[in-house]
Amino acid sequence: MQLSSVGRFLLVAIASLLCLMPLWYYLSPQLSKPVFFMAGEAASTLFHWALSYTQKETTALLNTTLKVVSVQNGQFKSGKLAPLVDYRLLGYGIVIFWALVLASFPRHWGRKLLIGSLAMLPIQALNVALQWCNDVFNRAGPEVFVQTGLPGWVADVVAFLYHFNLFIFTALAPVMLWLLLDREFLAKLHAQARAAVAVQRPQ
């Protein structure tokens, strides 16, 4: 039985995902370093209250000047807010991209793999920054948000973007990137389908 191009694509993509996902998991402490660096630099450039970040394995804390107060055993305790992000929760998209490139195997696939992998880094940095921002603007409470000095609509926009990113864009971004880098695959798929019809219905 001969597999269709979509069937072959699916099988190779699944096999690639199964092989590459554990490898990515193992390498993620290294892969997360440039992502956290970009997200940390962006946060400290954009927001006066963001100081720096501290990475530990695949997680990163954003160190801020924002004060938080909590009640523990009847006593008020104050500290500085430091939202935490786990790279793995937002970074698995790069494996989807690798699997799609290997499955479609375009011309210059090595170059496309490299370009796409590099392009995924700022996308993942955006994911990280969005989670930090959502934690500060929407999860730490109104007394923390007031300290940021930002208008209320910013919190609403960040909440929407954070959820859009978490539920949709994290997994979708690598697919869009692959479509951009390997437009030939869809064109070939379409052309093959048209050719099959032409053979079945000769004019």
């Binding site: 199964l18 494996v95 989807i96 699997a99 799609l100």
Partner: peptide, 16 residues
């Protein structure tokens, strides 16, 4: 991680 990727792959293949 794994099923998130597989569901996206499913969507892509259905679309194709």
């Amino acid at each position: 991680y794994l099923w998130q990727a597989l569901i996206m792959l499913d969507v892509l293949v259905v679309w194709m």
